[in-house]
């Protein structure tokens, strides 16, 4: 017996939101097919406050002009937590985004969101992953109170949970990470970096900052240290990793292991159809601190992937191993077994 299958709901085309640490990377991302790029100012107002990275006001203005000329959007991350008694540079950053006609600002701090909603009513607000809004009640709090239009979901939920969240919070949009560096802790709720170095993602915009990193060559290989703590040792034949605290090797119960996570990168190319069906509005690629070559390769791959899924074609088989950390990939928290 044959029965007609109900036609599947038409898939919504997700926006591809791509990282740009410099104007050159912004152009690379857009030329490779980004719908949006996200950027930050060259100071501690954003969570990728890395040496030599990010945009000054002139560069942002030019970047926005270039993006808009190609039909792409520019989102600006002002996603650290303003210092008590000194909120001025954060307020200035939000005001400049409004003035330069950024398509949205990505904010994490309640106080700053409150300020933005009051003083810049026409500026579109996105909730940063650093706010760690992991459930519908938290998300609705930001939407009802401040008119947040989109929330970047913390990397703690499974695809199934994301679908359930989307069903409960519509029409608030969700954005999820599809590729790149992977926080294994709930973002914005992690003080590991400041515990070791005094520099924190929330306050200073840098996790495991380069200023506190040291590599030492020994006869056995390379030792990487952060704030004086050994984070890992690599044999000469082993691929090395950046000493991000949660990707280090530690001893627990007398056994050395990657206790928190291996040096690895999130890669969801294989589960893109599931994420699209979960009703996600935008796919985010991590890596403002990576170069143009990374941006071009990853954006190109995900452009092909998303377009293939929407056209009902099979997923392209694209090898991104060579640009992932430790040459390894994971689908992270999107699959329950990861927990």
């Amino acid at each position: 017996m044959t029965t007609a299958q109900p036609a599947p709901a038409p898939l919504t085309r997700p926006e591809l939101v791509c990282p740009a640490g410099t104007p050159a990377a912004l152009k690379s991302a857009i030329d490779a097919g980004a719908d949006c790029v996200y950027v930050g100012f060259r100071d501690e107002t954003n969570a990728r406050n890395f040496p030599g990275l990010n945009f000054n006001r002139r560069e942002l203005a030019e970047g926005i002009e270039y993006a808009h000329g190609k039909g792409a959007k520019v989102l600006v991350a002002v996603n650290t937590f303003p210092r008590a008694g000194q909120p001025e540079i954060w307020h200035r950053a939000v005001a400049d985004c409004d003035e330069l006609k950024a398509d949205a600002v990505i904010l994490a701090d309640i106080g700053l969101i409150d300020h933005a909603a009051r003083h810049h009513p026409n500026l579109r607000l996105h909730l940063s992953v650093q706010a760690a809004a992991s459930n519908p009640d938290a998300i609705r709090f930001y939407a009802d109170r401040y008119g947040i239009k989109r929330v970047v979901l913390p990397r703690v939920l499974t695809v199934q949970e994301i679908a359930e969240v989307n069903a409960r919070i519509a029409p608030i949009e969700t954005e999820v990470f599809v590729f790149g560096g992977l926080c294994v802790m709930a973002e914005g709720r992690c003080a590991l970096s400041s515990y070791a170095t005094g520099q924190s993602p929330n306050i200073n915009g840098a996790c495991s900052p380069a200023s506190d990193v040291r590599y030492t060559e020994t006869n056995e290989g390379i030792t990487s240290e952060l704030g004086g703590f050994t984070i890992n040792k690599f044999a000469h034949t082993e691929p090395a990793g950046y000493p991000t605290l949660c990707k280090g090797r530690f001893i627990a119960n007398d056994k050395a292991s990657y206790l928190f996570e291996e040096p690895t990168s999130l890669n969801t190319l294989a589960i893109l159809p599931d994420l699209i069906r979960a009703g996600v509005t935008a796919f985010k690629i991590e890596g403002r601190q990576r170069g143009r070559a990374y941006v071009a390769a990853v954006v190109g791959a995900f452009r092909q992937g998303v377009d293939a899924v929407l056209a009902g074609k099979s997923l392209p088989d694209i090898d991104l191993d060579r640009i992932t950390e430790g040459g390894k990939q994971t689908t992270g928290a999107y699959e329950k077994a990861w927990r």
Binding site: F81, P82, R83, A84, G85, P87, A108, D109, I110, G111, L112, D114, H115, A131, A133, S134, N135, D137, A138, R140, F141, G188, R189, N202, I203
Partner: peptide
């Protein structure tokens, strides 16, 4: 978690150490 602060809706509560209170605006 901020969701818990939101659902106590107007009644007195304690903001815990695991909420991100970094500045006067959030406070």
């Amino acid at each position: 978690d901020i969701s818990v602060a939101a659902i106590t809706a107007g009644r007195p509560f304690v903001a815990g150490a695991l909420l991100n209170v970094y500045n006067e605006g959030t406070l």
